[in-house]
Simulated assay, not measured.
Amino acid sequence: MEFRRLGRSGLKISEISYGNWLTHGSQVEEDAALACVEAALDEGITTFDTADVYAGTRAEEVLGRALTGRRREGLEIFTKVYFPTGPGQNDRGLSRKHVFESIHASLRRLKTDYVDLYQAHRFDYETPLEETLRAFDDLVRQGKVLYVGVSEWRADEIERALRIADEMGFDRIVSSQPQYSMLWRVIESEVVPVCEREGIGQIVWSPIAQGVLTGKYKPGQPRPEGSRATDDKGGSDMIGRYLDDDLLTRVQELRPIAGDLGLSMAQLAIAWVLQNPNVASAIVGASRPEQVRDNVKAAGVRLDADVLKKIDDVLGPFVERDPSRTISPSTRP
């Protein structure tokens, strides 16, 4: 495993992070989830990403049990706040009330006294940004949060938060967690330049595009049983936009590129996002330990310019680059 600094902070994280969004507490049984975390630790992953809302709070609980007994100082545990965790009007969003209640619940579920990174899971248009940033800063001062970040925020929203933090003396955002892959590059034109200038690192999710870039979905063929495309707990909703036969045909054309490099297609996809110098880590998820072991082999891989051009030539018309595709709900969900 190799490690990178998170933006200009002093925190170093593993190039490959382990995330449990659509798996722990939902898609796979707990024994399998624990085995995946064990494999991640064995392979040198130290960075673990989750959120209070994943699997209705169960994902944090599973991760907390999986990491029990591990040396806390040797881990970086990340979680998030914004989406609903209960039925009440204040069980969501980025109000001071919900931020404080959510972190305390997350710490209980994760069985830890602090999280290394606390992230605003979306931008909250119903809460003054000053209120959210003050709440985050208070948690930093209390030692319950070491660093703060955001997920799926647009460039102008990040800039507003930085300006307020500087004016009010709050801790600055050190990270952004966007979707990013060969097929989804909406951060490149606006978010990445702002973050490079301001010392913010990207921790990217879905580097294999919900599994599509592994090549397991074949054009004109039924979706594999047990795959995300057949998951009725949220996975199939996310992957649907990629299950176009023309796109899947193009993805199969990446197979010889990966083969020439001695990489699996998943390794090629993960290595691709790590070529971006603003990316600190790529989040991978897994339902089986062997998937973790395959994915971590992307750490340290360097792709030359010719390879990157071949990938662009293959996927060209199917790459999404529009920065307006980064959207937070106009009202709390």
Rank of each mutant, 00 (worst) to 15 (best):
M1G: 01
R5N: 10
G7H: 05
K12Q: 15
K12W: 11
K12L: 14
S17A: 15
Y18C: 06
Y18K: 09
L22C: 13
H24M: 06
V28A: 14
E29V: 09
E30C: 00
D31N: 11
A33H: 01
A33Q: 00
A40M: 08
D42C: 08
D42K: 15
E43N: 12
E43A: 15
E43K: 09
F48Y: 07
T50C: 08
D52I: 03
A55Q: 02
G56N: 08
G56Q: 08
R58N: 10
E60I: 04
E60Y: 06
V62L: 06
R65W: 11
G69F: 07
R71I: 07
R71K: 14
F78V: 15
F78T: 12
Y82I: 01
Q89D: 03
N90F: 06
D91T: 06
D91Q: 08
L94S: 05
R96M: 11
K97Y: 13
S102Y: 00
R108C: 08
R109E: 02
D113V: 03
L117P: 07
L117S: 06
R122K: 08
Y125E: 10
T127L: 03
P128I: 04
L129S: 05
A135N: 06
D138I: 14
V140Q: 03
Q142P: 02
G143Q: 01
W153P: 01
E157F: 04
A161P: 07
A161I: 07
A165R: 03
E167T: 12
F170Y: 14
D171I: 00
S176C: 15
P178E: 12
E190Y: 12
V191R: 02
I200D: 07
Q202V: 10
S206F: 01
S206R: 06
A209G: 10
G215S: 11
P222C: 13
A229L: 15
T230Q: 13
D231A: 08
D232V: 09
K233I: 04
K233P: 07
G234L: 01
D246T: 15
D246E: 15
T249C: 04
R250N: 10
R250H: 13
L254R: 11
R255T: 07
I257T: 08
G262M: 05
A269G: 14
A271G: 06
A271K: 00
L274V: 11
P277S: 06
N278V: 12
I283E: 05
G285M: 05
Q291S: 03
D294G: 13
D294I: 01
V296W: 00
A298W: 07
A298H: 02
R302C: 12
A305P: 00
L308A: 05
K310Q: 15
D312N: 14
D313I: 09
V314L: 08
L315K: 02
G316L: 11
V319R: 05
E320D: 08
P323H: 14
R325W: 13
T326P: 02
P329G: 13
